[in-house]
């Protein structure tokens, strides 16, 4: 890989609980989808829990942070809180009606989670603005 400068603007980071339950997988897949779309960069929640200094410091320096939790245990949110990182947007999939144990990680559920996440990241505004720009 070329030595590209990485000193441009602070990144948007996305943390997913990526838990063992179905909704953990939904959260994980949504985070990866948003990363592929370029809306942010999925980052390692385990690095926050493990207090890996490079990951914690990068997170502290992030422009925006989106945290996606699959269930109301809010493991991802609590992990960031306990690391002293309190500046984030929080998406709780239960609030979208995705109940733990009853929400398989299929395309429909992942798309629902990703759509809400896009809106929280502000990308929903861009999508809505496009049709009117054409008119």
């Amino acid at each position: 890989m070329a030595n590209e400068c990485a000193c441009m603007g602070a990144p948007t980071l996305i943390f997913s609980c990526s838990g063992a339950a179905d909704v953990g997988e939904v959260a994980d897949r949504a985070a990866r989808m948003l990363t592929k779309e370029g809306l942010g960069r999925m980052y390692c929640l385990a690095g926050i829990g493990g207090r890996v200094s490079g990951i914690v410091k990068t997170t502290e320096a992030a422009d925006r942070i989106l945290v996606i939790d699959g269930c109301p245990l809010d493991c991802a949110k609590n992990s960031l809180d306990q690391a002293g990182i309190g500046r984030y947007n929080h998406l709780q999939l239960a609030d979208l009606g995705l109940a733990k144990g009853q929400s398989p990680a299929n395309d429909e559920n992942v798309s629902r989670a990703a759509a809400q996440a896009r809106e929280m990241l502000g990308a929903g505004c861009l999508t809505m603005a496009l049709p009117s720009a054409k008119a």
Binding site: C5, A6, C7, A10, P11, L13, R41, Y43, C44, G47, V52, S53, G54, I55, V56, K57, T58, E60, A61
Partner: peptide, 23 residues
């Protein structure tokens, strides 16, 4: 650089512990 978990540079580490990122 990425082995440190750092996504922004410059970063400062002291004895392997990252102290600052992006400044």
């Amino acid at each position: 650089i990425m082995k440190y978990g750092v996504m922004m540079t410059p970063a400062l580490a002291i004895d392997g512990d990252v102290k600052s990122v992006g400044k």
